[in-house]
Amino acid sequence: MWSMIFVSSLSLGSFYTLVALGFALIFGVTRNFNLAHGELVVLAGYVSYWLWKMWAFPFILTFPAAVLVSLVICLGLERLFARLHEPLALNSIVLSFGVAVVIQNSMLFLFSGNYRLIRIPVLSRGFHLPGLYISYTQITLLGSSLIILFLLYMLMYRTYLGKAMRATIQDKDAAAMAGINVSAMGTLAFCIGALLIGLAGPLYGCIHYLYPSSGQEATLVAVTITIFAGVGRLSGIILAGWILGLAESFTVVFFGVSWREMVSAVLLLALLYFRPHGILGHGER
């Protein structure tokens, strides 16, 4: 039984990493907290559900559409964020909170408040290994999350563009002085973030019921993982995702499903309590 819990929390944790990546990247490069992140993930899930259910698209082909929708919205969001005044982090929270309310209500209008789930028959099957049972959903989550992480790692650490982006994450002013087009890096971060959201959304719809206000939970997961990992550390993000996945699985085993929603909130509060200056540390705000 423990090995099964371990496998399921590993796949869930990897998926949480995927959910958090877009948020962390946008925050790292532009220092904007995007509280509408979860809503965008759910919206991407809805786009996929709708194409899959109404127009009988093959599930794989719904990903490009989900990416496209989130790309359009993220680029709009970037224009909104660009007009904010200092303090940037706080104002971006309030602004994106408004965006989250708008997206939630638009989804309520477009897709109604019913609970939806993308049920792919193939994914609900699985196979037995000695001592444990693995479903194809878990394999898909684990595999796709790790592949996307690997590709992002290659982009960030093996290309010149990635180097420029990491420089922007570390110190915006110094990066600008070194001749890096910082605002272009911001736009790029929003684009990659949108891509990640578009990939995470349909997968989210496979393992979690979609309803207009379900995005809050995903936002909280993304915030918790980002605060845990710190800015610009991909390995930290994977570790944080796995720890969150494990913590949620153990809470479900010991206390029951209904306490699961509190795990990421308690983790976030504990993190903020012990690291009051947040992710950046060193007394900097």
């Binding site: 982090a89 915030v223 903020l272």
Partner: peptide, 16 residues
Amino acid sequence: LRGAYFALATLAFVEI
């Protein structure tokens, strides 16, 4: 906590 981090903490606090 101050500013943005205070806001994030209150967002998480409601869950409890």
